[in-house]
Design a protein around this nucleic acid. Structure first.
Lengths: 188, 188
DNA sequence: CCTCGCACCATACGAAACGTACGGTGCGTT
DNA sequence: AACGCACCGTACGTTTCGTATGGTGCGAGG
């Protein structure tokens, strides 16, 4: 039985948090691991169902009031998770960046030059996202339980800064400097 | 009629290259814009079909030998592309990074520590990808037609270097230095 | 000149993911 | 008590995915 990466995300989340409802998972993923693995929240209702059917999760149904299912990890689920964590990771990260696409086609030499506006938009967005990350770090960075999670966010920050540098340089017409600085920093 | 981003990718590609077959597009996208917008190659057969049905592309069917459809841009298609390029871009880029997911769950304190192996793998991968990018730049960087395309690749390079720095620091246990250096470089 | 094999190219199709839209729940307010 | 709104869950039509398969034609080797 082949599990999708999103399945493992669910398993991992339940492993971290203990018994959880889909909504719990939604809240817990939305501004953390969700940044590194995009998916619609409806998956958090269908995936656990499937995982329960295959014995990876146990489901506890609350019968009063709001219909609500609490999932918890079974030994099989934990084993599957461990196995996945220990397995090789041949995949390179995947990106989907509309702005970059637009740049690609614009740079072809469009009649109107939409690049400056695009760059400004992107700069704003990345600055905003950086602020979100920084806020999370500053609020939780000193709590022990959160530290490992925060380390994960460092990659997000590096990426955001990379993007920010790129669009800033593009707006300023100093892409060549960008390259030069990078060569200095990480000489090949 | 709402077009998906992948549709615009097709339109843009045909705009750049002129009349193209799906396979042409596959080759042209696979190591350029495909890095910024991941999709399965079968889309390059179905999307143009749909775009042709809605008048964005014109299809020229070659009837001898290998069945082969050549698509070219119609005025409607060009208009749609321009409109899209000029429109605001509210989307933040999306990522899907299995390695980062694994790190997130591993850092929870797994019984076995798979992080060092994971980091080594990632370092290798990102170095490899950087080499691919650099190779492209060095082979085409001085040709006029390619320059705009190469600028687009700079973001890819920044991202790869960001990831490489992260995983290297993680492997070396110097994540704090990473943060410090970033603060120096891009003071808030 | 034939044919064999392999890389190239195209697509069918079942399964999975997506995302919107809707409907129930319950708490706080008036 | 009734209302309203934010919270929570899911149904369902649509799109995407990705594998698996089957043609096509060129070049190598006989």
């Amino acid at each position: 039985m082949r599990l999708s990466t999103t399945s493992y995300l669910v398993l991992g989340m339940v492993a971290l948090r203990g018994p959880s409802t889909p909504y719990d998972l939604k809240r817990a993923t939305s501004r953390s691991v969700g940044y590194f693995w995009n998916f619609p929240h409806t998956q958090l209702y269908s995936e656990p169902e499937r995982l329960a059917a295959s014995g990876m999760l146990a489901v506890d149904l609350e019968d009063s009031g709001r219909r609500r299912k609490t999932y918890s990890l079974t030994p099989e689920g934990r084993a599957a998770l461990q196995e996945w964590l220990a397995a090789p990771t041949p995949e390179h990260f995947e990106m989907r960046d509309v702005a970059e696409l637009k740049l690609f086609f614009n740079e072809a030499g469009a009649p109107d030059d939409d690049v400056p506006k695009l760059a400004q938009e992107q700069i704003r967005q990345h600055e905003e996202r950086i602020a979100v990350y920084e806020d999370m770090v500053s609020r939780h960075g000193d709590e022990d339980w959160a530290r490992p999670r925060m380390i994960t966010l460092e990659l997000g920050l590096e990426m955001e800064h990379a993007a920010l540098r790129f669009w800033t340089a593009l707006a300023a017409g100093t892409i060549d400097d960008l390259r030069r600085e990078r060569d200095e920093r990480d000489p090949r």
